[in-house]
């Protein structure tokens, strides 16, 4: 009996909570969420850059939380604060570096194939939202660089008609965007992206055919547990 069949037969599910549980378990069973194996084709260094971006994002968040404890002026006057500011800056640089290599890799693998369009779109979305988040961070440096970025950056926003509602010279507003709204947005879209990757699995090679030895050469004894796992 496959998991789907088991779930379909789950008795007495009539509450919203129960139905949500059945739906979630069907869409993303625990062994898909936390897998112990991957298809044999998942064997390239290109696959590590997504995790690199996630690792960097965690450091960005951690260093950002430490900076939040003491407020934006701390790093101007404390050596420890300046070091944490440096951690925040370099984790952002590393996050973009790994994210862009990840994006290149996924493009050349055409990773949107097989019903993975939303995975691709949320990936591009997290890149775009991260750019806005980083931009507001530069405005919070409260130094010459942020003064200049506020002055120069206003023109593109004003020309687009949104400069009054996203006012880069308004430190209070940019502060809130940077420490609440944009981290929530980046976090939410990255979580959605990762969940979609787990739900849909890693895209098979372009032109993979049912006659390939890695699809057909599996001994019958090994096929049974494999099927149970993948389903």
């Amino acid at each position: 009996m496959t998991q789907d069949e088991r779930l379909d037969r789950e008795p007495d599910v009539h509450t919203w909570t129960g139905r949500a549980r059945v739906w979630m378990l069907k869409k993303l069973p625990p062994d898909k969420l936390l897998p112990e194996d991957q298809p044999s084709y998942v064997a390239s260094w290109i696959y590590v850059f997504g995790m690199g971006a996630i690792g960097s994002l965690l450091i960005v968040i951690a260093s950002g939380v430490i900076l939040s404890l003491n407020g934006p002026n701390w790093y101007h006057i404390s050596a420890l604060g300046h070091f944490v500011n440096s951690l925040h800056l370099w984790s952002v640089e590393l996050m973009f570096l790994t994210m862009v290599v990840h994006l290149w890799g996924k493009f050349w693998m055409a990773s949107w194939r097989g019903g993975r369009a939303l995975t691709w779109i949320t990936g591009v979305g997290s890149f775009a939202v991260s750019i806005v988040a980083a931009f507001t961070g530069y405005l919070l440096q409260t130094n010459f660089d942020s003064q200049w970025i506020a002055f120069e950056g206003k023109d593109a926003l004003n020309a687009s008609g949104i400069g009054a509602w996203f006012n880069v010279s308004n430190l209070g507003q940019m502060f809130m965007w940077h420490v609440t709204l944009l981290p929530l947005a980046v976090g939410a879209i990255v979580v959605l992206h990762v969940v979609l990757v787990r739900m849909r699995g890693v895209v098979p090679p372009i032109d993979a055919a049912a006659t390939d030895s890695q699809l057909t050469g599996v001994p019958a004894t090994a096929t049974e547990p494999t099927e149970a796992k993948v389903n």
């Binding site: 044999s40 064997a43 260094w45 290109i46 850059f49 570096l97 890799g105």
Partner: peptide, 23 residues
């Protein structure tokens, strides 16, 4: 930074992945 990204991308493509013999 940009050259590092290109180099990492190139290396990731050509370097053999350890244990890629498969289970």
């Amino acid at each position: 930074i940009i050259l590092t990204m290109l180099a990492l991308f190139g290396l990731a493509l050509v370097l053999p992945f350890p244990g890629s013999g498969g289970r």
